[in-house]
Design a protein around this nucleic acid. Sequence first.
DNA 1: AATGAATGAGCCTTCATTCAT
DNA 2: GATGAATGAAGGCTCATTCAT
Lengths: 215, 215, 215, 215
Amino acid sequence: MILMDDPKQHLLNVAGQKFAEKGFDATNVREITEAAGMNVASVNYHFGSKEELYLETVRHAARMCEQITPMPTWEEGVPAEQRLREYIRSFLTRLLREDVPTWHRKLIMREVAEPRPGGCEVFVHSFVKPSFELLQGILRDLTPPGTPLETLHLIGSSIVGQVLHYHHARNVLKLLFSAEEFQRLQIDRLTDHIWRFSLGAIRSLCPRKSKGEGR
Amino acid sequence: MILMDDPKQHLLNVAGQKFAEKGFDATNVREITEAAGMNVASVNYHFGSKEELYLETVRHAARMCEQITPMPTWEEGVPAEQRLREYIRSFLTRLLREDVPTWHRKLIMREVAEPRPGGCEVFVHSFVKPSFELLQGILRDLTPPGTPLETLHLIGSSIVGQVLHYHHARNVLKLLFSAEEFQRLQIDRLTDHIWRFSLGAIRSLCPRKSKGEGR
Amino acid sequence: MILMDDPKQHLLNVAGQKFAEKGFDATNVREITEAAGMNVASVNYHFGSKEELYLETVRHAARMCEQITPMPTWEEGVPAEQRLREYIRSFLTRLLREDVPTWHRKLIMREVAEPRPGGCEVFVHSFVKPSFELLQGILRDLTPPGTPLETLHLIGSSIVGQVLHYHHARNVLKLLFSAEEFQRLQIDRLTDHIWRFSLGAIRSLCPRKSKGEGR
Amino acid sequence: MILMDDPKQHLLNVAGQKFAEKGFDATNVREITEAAGMNVASVNYHFGSKEELYLETVRHAARMCEQITPMPTWEEGVPAEQRLREYIRSFLTRLLREDVPTWHRKLIMREVAEPRPGGCEVFVHSFVKPSFELLQGILRDLTPPGTPLETLHLIGSSIVGQVLHYHHARNVLKLLFSAEEFQRLQIDRLTDHIWRFSLGAIRSLCPRKSKGEGR
DNA sequence: AATGAATGAGCCTTCATTCAT
DNA sequence: GATGAATGAAGGCTCATTCAT
């Protein structure tokens, strides 16, 4: 029997896993409560409704994501190139690391891709925006002053898109690549590639300024 | 009243829209048939079951995607740079053009992201793979001979990731960017950016060969 | 393709088989019409409704039963013992012979055992009663004058019960007896047994009169 | 309002009645649950499915039949004639007594006559066989040693057939006999007739041995 | 505080029947 | 005269939710 110091928390964890795996609609409360070894009514008792339980799992996932794999912060003077590399690595780590419960990120990615109506746009805002702005700060230091905001946004999107691809296309990549090659798509290797790819691109787009000074 | 020369086709179209919007589970047949102005039993009459109707919409979507916005082919001698540009443009067009029913691509992207069990992996294979191999051919011409396959795959993924980002992140981009800026994310502009970004990156990664000859 | 000089008759035959096999409720019109190679609407076109088609098959079955295996008639002077034997043989033949379509009797037995509401009690009357009265005539000759009607009825029921048992219990007998023994339950053998059994019983019940004279 | 100490049992009883009356196909769950004063979903809640509820009613009916009207057992030395009489009486009692719920036997007879596919042949075996073997034991004592098994089977079938006739032909007998005479077909009277009829027949078939000793 | 029994709305599907042709 | 398409009522079943305990 699983220790149940906090039954509500236990229920939340089990529900989170199920929702992350199969989505809201395909998961029913009986399945959740049985897997949790609890009563069918416990969902409504603790959370009021299935809907509210779902929102709670999403909020919890966001908190845990941030806590377990925080985005980096730097002291003054760290070169923008290095910061970019660490940003990419952190982002990839969030998506791919396997030494922590994976349902957090799966659930969030699911919610970002297709927010439930009446859902948590506010939360998405508060979760995604800081990360994107962190990247914008780095890019500002990698590009000449006066580079239009829109250009920064496009470059940012290019970098984020590359990273997220390894989440979104995981099913397809398994089919396109050999099992062996798929196995080698590890965080280190991907960080290295995306960093070099993006840095080369940025230097090519904005030839002047190639040395990143502190912010 | 909608013209109903072919009621089965009409039903397929309405169902496709619904499935693309809300997914299989969240869409019920009553909703589909009411929207189509047809009887509840018509789904089972024409397609046998909701499941089979769904599969049919996916197959139809794939056919139409390919037919309406085919990937480009080139004659001998077209420079690889130009081919890359046209590849990116075609890909973006598939994802973003608004002058054709959008449910085709939405449904396919949904199925790629999360294939239904017992679903159409075969189809995905046959739909995604050629596109990716077309890109690989271009990249082979843009990189020095002897460039490892794995490198080509990584570069390919970087390009595809950038493009797909504007599909996957459409909800988030709406929140991150101003409405005005979001509006400006048109095919032309994005093609231009991704092309220049990627080409710069490739040249930077593989400095020698910068001129793409015919294949 | 089956010859369809009379499509209505063809439909009736196919329906009769299905109804006899699986009963009214478990048989649906699509199944019937498909087996008949005809249109779904043909049932309603030719017979008005499934219900009416059913009644028609029962009526047809009764006519054919009577026509194919008529109950015997005798000239003056045939001994009652012989008439009893031939009665039993005819009855068993109706139930067990396999060289004619079996659905007629199956359907009738089904209807007798459990008449459909609004069904054909009238018909049953007209079908069963003559047969039972034929038997009563024989028994009157086998028993002393003045034997109460009720006794004749009981004896008649005993004989009919024995015969019908091989229809009603066919499923169970298959389980109770060896396959070999079950195979041997042929009309001749059963006639012989039931006749001797019943005759012995009658003589034992009514010791005086053991010689059957003509009526 | 019916007492509902055990709602599951109550549902079983109501369902049993309906199934016995109209058969599985013609009975729908709404009808059952309404008659039981319960919710439509209660069938699936308590029994999983309509099919499983049906099987449960059959099993219950078999248990109750055996329990309420058990077949007799005898000590050493009871004459075979007496045992035959009591066997017939018990059998008739099972079929005709009206002081206990009648759906038990109706349902069983229905299942015996036409077992549902995937049904309970095993059960039939275990229910019918012992009864038939009990009779065989009696007949062995009523017939000379060396009487072939097949003869015993035929005699047994003749006896069982007579008894069952009053169940199978109940609808027809109502039409053939006057209401008054039909009313008089009581257990005592029928036992007496079938016993004397059969005993006379056996003695006539096997003239030697007429005294039944204990087994 | 937490449960197990029980509910009713809603789902997909089947079916006899109808209607335009 | 006969069909094939289409219908709507009804069926069994699932599910989130409720309620007495």
